[in-house]
Simulated assay, not measured.
Amino acid sequence: MSARPDILCIGSVLWDIIGRSALAMRQGSDVPGRITRLPGGVAMNIAMTLARFGLRPAVLTAIGRDAAGEELVAACGRLGVETRFAYRSDDLPTDQYMAVEGANGLIAAIADAHSLEAAGEKILRPLGDGALGSAAAPWAGMIALDGNLTVHLLAEIAGSPLFAAADLRVAPASPGKAERLLPLMGHGGATLYVNLEEARLIGHEAYDSAGAAAEGLLARGAARVLVTDGGRACAEGARGAGVIVDHPPQVMVTRVTGAGDTFMAAHVVAERRGADRAAALAAAIRAAAVYVSGEAPA
């Protein structure tokens, strides 16, 4: 690919190793199921969904030059995700993520994103060296940003002139990393995509619904926020425009890893196509429901 990307996805691009069983599980369960190895990571999941919708995403990330990294770059190319701006390290191994899911949802997961964290600001070089932008002419399009980046790097992004003109779409990597997004709360161009648990951690409040969480985060300074809550009501709130709420359809849940990333990507695509707030929220909810039902490709 040589065309300018439609959107940049900054963060984790790694191998997802997911074990899934159709049975309910608990700690210590030993059950039959399937184990898959697929390209993943928050930034990659978003990029793959954007590519399926016809956009040209590029990832800014760290990928090793090991065998796993070469396989991952090749897989990204087949999926329509541009990796030519990625930082390729001779010393750092390619990151990976492991999760176990049962009929009752996510049982446990471990994210090994140490190489991304070690690479730090090196992954942002194309935004300053003229390849994608510079301090004098910053990238002015959409950027999907994930919370696998370090607190230091996220704080640097929040105040950097390289991101001053960007439409930032921000997602935590997990509830455990949600508070890393606090430096971005004051960025006027940032839209936060969080689930209810993550919203509670960021807002330091026990919100009882997505709508309440959206209102609470706006009150704490967020410019715009979308809050999901599994199969319950989802909300979108914007500074000066209030909060709107919509409800997901009831579907059989067959997978959960990647659902939030699918929601975010579908919302981005809907807005790029000119959808208003309500229509964009509805489109994102539908896409996430189709994904968790297993009707959309992983």
Rank of each mutant, 00 (worst) to 15 (best):
M185G: 01
S134K: 03
G128I: 10
G159L: 02
M185R: 13
G128N: 10
V151R: 14
A173P: 03
K122Q: 15
A144P: 06
P126T: 11
G120C: 14
R125E: 15
G128D: 12
V170Y: 08
T150M: 11
A140L: 07
A165C: 13
S134T: 15
A165E: 13
S134E: 09
I123G: 10
L132T: 07
H152G: 14
A199E: 03
G120L: 12
L124Y: 08
A137W: 04
N195A: 03
G186F: 06
R180S: 00
A199F: 04
T150P: 11
A158K: 05
R200P: 02
E197G: 10
K177S: 04
I123V: 15
W139F: 14
P172E: 02
G147W: 04
A164L: 05
L132E: 11
V194S: 02
S134A: 08
H187F: 07
A158G: 08
N148G: 04
I202C: 04
G130Y: 14
A136M: 11
P183Q: 05
F163C: 06
A178V: 01
L127A: 09
R125I: 14
Y193P: 00
L145W: 11
L132S: 10
P175I: 07
G176W: 00
R125N: 13
G188F: 08
L127R: 12
E121N: 15
S134H: 05
G141Y: 11
T150H: 09
L145S: 09
L182C: 08
L168C: 12
V151M: 10
I202F: 02
S160L: 01
G159Q: 10
L154P: 04
G186L: 06
P126Q: 10
G120R: 14
I123T: 12
